[in-house]
Design a protein around this nucleic acid. Structure first.
Lengths: 139, 139
DNA sequence: ATTGCTATTGACATTCATTATCAATAAGTC
DNA sequence: GACTTATTGATAATGAATGTCAATAGCAAT
C-alpha cells in the first residue's frame, strides 16, 4: 500500500485560499458556494475531498456544528482549542498547557493510553451581547 | 406558547430503560434495533424524539461520533465529561472543578458570556491495549 | 367505566450532508 | 510532445435525522 504522489492543482489552492479568507468556521457547503460565487466551477466533491485532506494533514481544524454539519477552519499546526461564539461563530484560539496536562493525567489514571481530546468552549461574544440587549431581547 | 402537558407512555419508558441498559454510548438507530429485537414495535421517529427530549431534560448526554452519528448515554444530572475508549467505546465519567473553572475563566477573559463547554478525552483502555498486543499488533 | 380533548405514536415521505462512482481531464515526468 | 495516472466534477447513492398526518391512547373530568 504505497501512498500515491500528490499533485498540485488550482482547485486545492482555491479551497485552501478560501478557507484562509473565511473568518471562523465554515462548512464544506458554504465554502463551495463561496467559491462558485467567485466564479470557480469547482465541484462539491472536490471541496469535501480537499477539506478532508487538509484536516488530515493538520492544516485545518474540524468540529461538528450542533445541526450535524462538519465545520472547518484554517489553523496552525500547533495543538490548540477554540472559544466559539454561539451567535456569530467568531472564534478565538486557546492554548493551555494546564488543561493538556490534565487531560493526559486523567487518561493515565484510568489506564487509557494514547490520550487525545476535544475541548470546545462556547459563549456569546461581547459584540453579540450588546446587539442582543439593544434589540430588547435581554434575558 | 404554553408547554403542552407531558404524558407517560410505555414507549418513553422503553427508550429510557434501553438507554440505561446500554453500556457506553449508543445511537438512536442502534437503540431502535435493540428495542425491536426485544419485541417492541416502537417507531424510529419516536426513538429520536424521546432521545432528544431526554437530552434536553438533562437525563442523557449526547455527543457526535466521528462518522456523523449522534450518540446518547444515560447520565446523572450532575455536570461532567467523558473519557472514552476509541476501540470498545467504554466510558468513564469525569468530574473536575479545575477544568470547569478554567473554561469559565477563559470565556470571561475574552468577553464571552454564558459559557458552556464540551470536553471529551479519548484513548485506548487497558483491556483493548492488552487485546491488541496479544494479537501481535503492538505499535 | 365512559367521554372528550389532545399529546403521542408510527409508517412513510422528505430533506440534506456526505460519500461513491466513473469517464474525462490535466499534473508531472521523461 | 507523449505517457502515466492522480485528480476532477457531474451525478447517483447512502444514510441519519426530521416533517407529515391519520390513528391511537393518556389522563382529567364526569
Amino acid at each position: 500500500m504505497v501512498e500515491p504522489k500528490r499533485r498540485n492543482t488550482p482547485q486545492k489552492a482555491a479551497v485552501k485560499h478560501a478557507l484562509g479568507e473565511a473568518t471562523g468556521f465554515v462548512s464544506a457547503q458554504q465554502l463551495h458556494q463561496t467559491l462558485k460565487n467567485h466564479g470557480s466551477s469547482i465541484g462539491l466533491a472536490t471541496v469535501y475531498r480537499t477539506l478532508a485532506d487538509l484536516a488530515q494533514a493538520g492544516d485545518a481544524d474540524s468540529l461538528q456544528s450542533n445541526d450535524g454539519e462538519v465545520l472547518y477552519r484554517a489553523c496552525t499546526n500547533a495543538h490548540h482549542h477554540h472559544l466559539i461564539c454561539r451567535e456569530c461563530g467568531k472564534t478565538v484560539e486557546i492554548e493551555a498547557d494546564r488543561v493538556e496536562k490534565w487531560a493526559d493525567e486523567v487518561a493515565q489514571e484510568h489506564g487509557f493510553s494514547e490520550p487525545s481530546h476535544n475541548i470546545d468552549i462556547f459563549g456569546n461574544c461581547a459584540a453579540c451581547q450588546s446587539a442582543k440587549s439593544k434589540s430588547g431581547l435581554a434575558n
